[in-house]
């Protein structure tokens, strides 16, 4: 299980990264934490002619909160964000969801942006970004653009990123929600979720639900949680629409069933 040969480049600036991306396009892969990329390279599941290592770029290793949004740079590890002092106070849902991402050891190296760019449909960070209606900031030599989460995540392992673009930051807008909840079902602790469910209740009582593991990308929906029965109806309808999918660990029917129950639980949790 050894990777195929590839060229390795460790640029000193983001400009250099963008130049390399412009030159190599989809022959190149960005190496940030490597916690998804390197297993795939070891298993020879993907091709990469060039690895561009951005893990040492200090300009990408920043967490900024300007009151409007939390901006997480592309070299920021998941554990670094978890340890950010104001996270639990200001971004309670992120604080609730991050501990479900992999393990302590992989969070030490795995990056927030990398997980979002990888776009595994059952991983937590894409779901969290969707819940915050956040955006992904992409840069290339052609310019910079911010893509809303719902447009960024297109399908399983598929995003709106162009081959010459670098995810430089992701932005989690400051939430107005009062209460949040995050739950997931996995076969083992730290595994990719079978399904992950998040809920956030705003001041007006409206609840936003999000789910990972039901479709090719995380899905969110506003639920009018006037009472448990109407919430259950809405969730049930949503589950049927989403269908879910079959894999080794769960059937589509089971995923729908889990969504109904887990979503009802988190709605109740945030509606208190």
């Amino acid at each position: 299980m050894k990777p195929r040969p590839f060229d390795y480049v460790r640029p000193d600036t983001v400009e250099e990264v963008l130049a390399l991306l412009a030159e190599h396009g989809d022959e190149a892969r960005i190496l940030a934490g490597g916690q998804s990329l390197i297993p795939m390279l070891n298993l020879r599941l993907i091709e990469a002619a060039v690895l561009i290592d951005i893990s040492r770029l200090a300009e990408l290793d920043t967490i900024r909160s300007d009151g409007g949004a939390l901006e997480v740079g592309a070299a920021v590890t998941q554990n670094k964000l978890m340890a950010w002092p104001d996270l639990a106070r200001d971004f309670a849902l992120l604080a609730a969801g991050l501990p479900f991402v992999g393990h302590f050891q992989t969070r030490n190296k795995g990056t927030v942006c990398g997980s979002i760019a990888h776009a595994d449909p059952s991983s937590e960070l894409p779901l969290l970004l969707a819940m915050y209606a956040g955006e992904v900031v992409l840069r290339s030599q052609r310019g910079t653009r911010a893509v809303p989460a719902e447009d960024f995540h297109k399908d399983m392992l598929t995003t709106a990123r162009e081959a010459d673009e670098l995810v430089v930051t992701v932005r989690f807008p400051h939430p107005s929600d009062r209460r949040v909840a995050f739950r997931e079902i996995a076969r083992r602790h730290g595994d990719f979720a079978i399904i992950a469910v998040a809920a956030a209740a705003g001041a007006n009582g409206a609840v936003t639900l999000g789910v990972g593991g039901m479709a090719g990308r995380p899905m969110t929906r506003a639920i009018a949680a006037r009472d448990a029965a109407s919430a259950a109806d809405a969730i049930g309808q949503w589950a049927e629409e989403l269908e879910g999918y079959d894999d080794l660990h769960a059937s589509a029917a089971m995923r729908r069933d889990m969504l109904r129950k887990l979503a009802a639980n988190v709605v109740a949790e945030v509606a208190q």
Partner: peptide
């Protein structure tokens, strides 16, 4: 060599990481 078992965990600059998911050059 795919980051699950943890046997290869080492510290880089004091931080525990999987050495099988790290390139030597890194």
């Amino acid at each position: 060599e795919h980051g699950v078992c943890g046997a290869c965990t080492v510290l880089i600059d004091g931080v525990a990481v999987r050495s099988c998911l790290t390139l030597a050059v890194q």
